[in-house]
Design a protein around this nucleic acid. Sequence first.
RNA 1: GGUGGAUUGGCCGAGAGGCGAGGCAGCGGCCUGCAAAGCCGUCCACACCGGUUCGAAUCCGGUAUCCACCUCCA
Length: 473
Amino acid sequence: MTIRLYDSKSAQLREFVPLVAGQVGMYVCGPTVQSSPHIGHLRSALVYDHLRRWLTHEGFAVTLVRNVTDIDDKVLENARAAGVEQWWALAYRMEREFTDAYSALRIQPPTYEPRATACIPDMIELVRLLMKRGHAYAIPGSNGNVYFDTASWSSYGELTNQTVMVMPQIEQLDDGAPGKRDPRDFALWKAHKPEEPESASWDTSWGRGRPGWHIECSAMATKYLGTTFDIHGGGLDLRFPHHENELAQSAAAGHDFAQLWLHNGLVAVGDQKMSKSLGNSLYAAQLLESARAIVVRYFLGSAHYRSQLEFHPTALAEAKSAFERIETFLARAARVGGPLKSGKVTNEFRDAMNDDMSIPTALAALHDTVRSGNALFDAGNDKGGLTNARTALAMLDVLGLNPYAPEWAGTSSEGAATRAALDSLVTRLLASRAHAREQKDFVTSDRIRDDFASAGIIVEDTPQGAHWSIDGE
RNA sequence: GGUGGAUUGGCCGAGAGGCGAGGCAGCGGCCUGCAAAGCCGUCCACACCGGUUCGAAUCCGGUAUCCACCUCCA
C-alpha cells in the first residue's frame, strides 16, 4: 500500500516515502494576518487537514507546522490605513479570526503554529548565512536592505520552470529598490523606514529593519522541521514568487528543504479567482452564516484539492442535500442499533485517498456505502445496514465529517437539557398524533405535523413509528 | 510575451483506450392514509477539426475558448 502525491516541483505523481519511517514532517504556508479569512483560506487549510488526517489514519506520526506571518508590508499598511490600531494588534486580531474559522470547520490545530515575529533571530541567522555563502548582498548605504542574489544561484526558477525571466519594466521594479543587481533579486531584509513604527524593526549587523516576505517560511520550516523535511504545502498562487524564492534561499543556504511540494487549487467565484479588486470575496464569516459548518466543510472538500473549486449560489444548498442524505442514513442506523462505532473504510475509499488524495472518488465510495446501507435496511437486513453505517462513519472520520464524533459534539449542557425537554413534549404530541392516525383522523394528524413543521420540526413516519428531527440540524 | 492548467450530461464534479463515478436538480415507479425519508428506473455526457487504433471522451497533432501565476494573494 503506497500513497501517491502530486509533486509540483517535478510535475508528477510521486510515491510518498517519508525521510524517517513512520514519521511525516509537513510545513504549510499559513496566512499573512492582514485581513479577515475568506473561503480560499479555509479551503487551503482544509486540504492539508485532510492530508494530515489521512496520513495519521494510515499510521504516520505527523508533525504539521503552519505559520502565521504577522509582520509584513500589508500588515503595516492596513494598520496604518485604519489609523487607530497598532500593527501587532491588527495581526493578532486577524490571527484570532483565522483560528475561529478553522475551529468552526474542525480543522485540527497544527502541531505548532509559529509566528514570524517570534522567529526573527532565526531569520537574521539565515540571512547572515546566505551573505556568508555569497548568495545575498546588502545595499551599501541603505542601512539594512539585503537582497538574495539570484544570479549566484543557477537553480533559481527550478520550482516553477522559469528559466528566462523577462522583466519588461526595470525602472518600475527598481523604483523602490535602488541598488538591486538583478530585477529578479528579492528582499531578504528591509531597512527600517522612518514612517514605519519602531516596534516593527529589529537590529542586525547590517542595519535595523524587518524581514522580507519569503524568509520567514524558510526560517520557520527549518527551525521546527529541520533542514530537510517531507512535505511543503500551500496555495497555487504562492508557487511564484513565494515558494520559488523560499526554495532558492533555503537551497542556497545548503538545506535540502522539502522533498515534496504540494499546491492546492484556488476557489473561483463566477469562473474567476476571488479577489478584493473584483469585489467577489467571500469571507469565512459569510460562509458560516449561510450554512452549517459541517456542510461548508463537505462543500469545500467536494472537488479534488488540485482543481479549482467553483463557488456558485446553489453550491451550499446542494452540499446540504448531499450531506443530509448521509446524516439521514446515520440517524436511521442509530435508531436501529443505538450509538454507533466507526468500523473500517472500504478498499475503494482507501485506494482513492492513496491516489493523490482523490476525495471526490472517496466520497463516491461513501455514497455507495450509504445507498447500499439504505437498501439493506429497506430489505430488513439490519445487521448489514449497521455494518455499512459503521463503514460510513470510518470514512467520515477521515474526512472530519462524522457528526457523532466528539469534535462535532455540542458542548453545551444547556443544549442537551433543552433537547431533552423538547423531546418530552414532542413525544407526547406524537403519541396523540399516532392515536389520531389509528382513528383515521387525518385532519388532526396532519395538523399536528403541520404545526411541527411551522416550528421547524420535521416529522417522518416509519414502520417503527414516527420520528422527529429539527430542520437544518 | 513566458510558465502551468482547464474545456465532461440541466448544475456541481471524478475518472479513463473497450465494461454508464458520485452528488444535486428533473421525470417515472415502489413504499405511504397523504407526505417525508428510502429504494428501483430514467435522463447514456465528455469544446472543435484531423490522425493513430478492431475500438478514443480517454493517446497524438492542430484550432478555439477560458483560467491561474509572472505585482500582494490560500
